[in-house]
Amino acid sequence: MNKTNQTSTRREFLRQSALTCGTTVASMAVIALILPDDAYAAGTTSEYDWDKHRWVYLIDTRKCIGCGSCARACRKENQVPEGMYRTWIERIAIPPEGEVHVDSPYGGEHGFEPDPPNAHVRKSFFVPKLCNHCSNTPCTQVCPVGASFETNDGVVLVDPKQCIGCGYCLQACPYGSRFMNPHTRTADKCTLCYHRITKGLPTACVQACPVGARQLGDRKNPNDPVNEILATQRVQVLQQQLLTKPQCFYLGLDMEVR
């Protein structure tokens, strides 16, 4: 084999390899572009279009009676492991002087003891908590593999098939909304009952609340009563100073609630 011949074969080889590599990368890119939407659309009903909804959550702390029905419903609906909480209820008791008392025995799941912890307390109320489904999420930002993500309709989810279980998102969430599921060994959190809301059902907690303290709203539905409240009343979010833009809004929050 002479030298020229060798060079041309090599050039040919390089050209072929470049072509193969290029085609592979291009097709992978196309697959990557198509895949996410398809994959998640597959889990929902065919008529559901996630671009037509924007879920928000509204909690009226003035209505909550601390019965714990929501937390029990959540555990049952989502098989939440014992000792872990996708939602919980806090009781805040603020005496005229001295320390604020906060408690949440078993996440408030079994209700609260009737006696106030401090007899002098004149301001006491319940605050249900859950994932705030922030639109500027610190938790999805830190996920090293993108297993935690935000859906187009505004729900923050974890894909248990991708989660590596590093726990970085647990550390990044300022609200303590996430936990490590001991069975799946992956990060777990409130899904806003995505399997229900995409079928037109309310979340388990909203359905279980006997006093209507919890409401699910859809920002893209002009007739949604939650939109009316958000538009006309003074609402607050938790830890506003962190600028995570929670999509879970509160009525009647006190400055002592964190």
Partner: peptide
């Protein structure tokens, strides 16, 4: 008072 999910040491 600890948030109920905060009683674990994850790291």
């Amino acid at each position: 008072f600890l948030f109920p999910n905060d009683v674990h040491i994850h790291w």
